[in-house]
Amino acid sequence: MSLDWTHGKVEMAHGGGGRAMTQLIDALFLPAFDNAVLSARNDQAVLPAPCQKLVVATDSHVISPLFFPGGDIGSLAVHGSLNDLALAGARPRYLTAAFILEEGFPLADLKRIAASMARAAQEAGVSIVTGDTKVVERGKADGVFITTTCVGEMLDDQSRGVTQIRPGDQILLSGTLGDHGMAVMSLREGLQFDSDLMSDTQSLHGLIEAMIVAVPDIHCMRDPTRGGVAAVLNEIASQTQLGIRLEEKAIPVNPAVQGACDLFGLDPLFVANEGKLLAFCPPEQTAYLLATMRSHPQGEQAALIGEVSADYPGQVSMRTTLGGLRRVDWLSGDPLPRIC
C-alpha cells in the first residue's frame, strides 16, 4: 500500500524498523535529500576526509508553530547546526538528521518539512548523508523534533573564540534584530496580529567565509539566537570579565519588529534571531570588515553596534537614544508582554 500524502498520518509502525519505516524512508527522505551516500542506505555514512581540521556542531530543534513566515522547522534545523559550525570559521560539508515524530502527525506536513530541509541544504551546498527516524505515541512529542549534526572543515588555522576577545574590539552585527522571534510570536495563540514579520532564518556560512577571507583576524563570531543579543553579550562579558558597551541608535531593527515589540512591551535585544551574527573585530580592521559585510547579501544592513572595554568587567551596558546609560541584563525566563 502506498503512502497517502494528502490525508495520511504518521503511525507507530513508521518508526518500528519494519516495512512501514523502510517505505517512509524510501518514499520521502531518500528522494528529498537525494545523494549517493544516503541512498546506499547504510546506518552510517562513509565520507572522503577533508584535508583541514574537522569541525562538528549539533543542535536540536523544537518549535511551535512548526511553520512560520520565512521558514519552518525543517529549514531552521538545517540553518541551526550549519551556522553553529560556520561561526568557528568553518565550511559546512555534511549534515545528519534525526527525527522524532509524534504518532498522528500529518504525512503532508512531514513531506513539506523534508522538502524544506532539502532546499535549505542544497542552497548551502551540503548533503544530508545519514539520518534516523523514531515515532513516539501521540501526546509524547509536539509534532516533530529534529536534531541535526553538521560536519565541516576549518577554513584556516586561525583560532577564534571568546578567549580571543580583547579590550578595544569592536562589535559588528550582520543585520536587523528580532525578526525570527517576533515572526514566531506573531503566530502564537492569542497573539495573532497582521504584520509583515518574517523570520530571518538563513545559513550564514557564505557571509562568514567572505568575512574571514577579508579579515582573518576576526577574534570571535557568535549568533544571537535564543535570548537575543543581550544573552550572548552577557555570556561573553561574564566569561571574559570584560565590559561591553552598546550604542542604541546604531542597532538596526525592522520597523515591523519594533512595532510588534512596542505593542507587547518587549525589547528587540532579547528577541531570538536565526540568521544574524555578531563579530568581534580589532578596531583597525573594522571599517574594512563592515564594508565586506555590507557588500554581501546576508550582511547588507550590517552595523557597528558597540565595543569591548576593560572598564566595568562582566557588564553589558548601552548608551540609549536619549544619551542615558543603562545596563543590558540577561532576561529572566521568556520575554513576556507587559500588563500595565
Partner: peptide, 12 residues
C-alpha cells in the same frame, strides 16, 4: 518606571 530606566533618564 520602566521607561525611565530603560532610557537611562534619571542620570540625565
Amino acid at each position: 518606571t520602566h521607561a525611565l530606566f530603560r532610557y537611562g533618564i534619571p542620570d540625565l
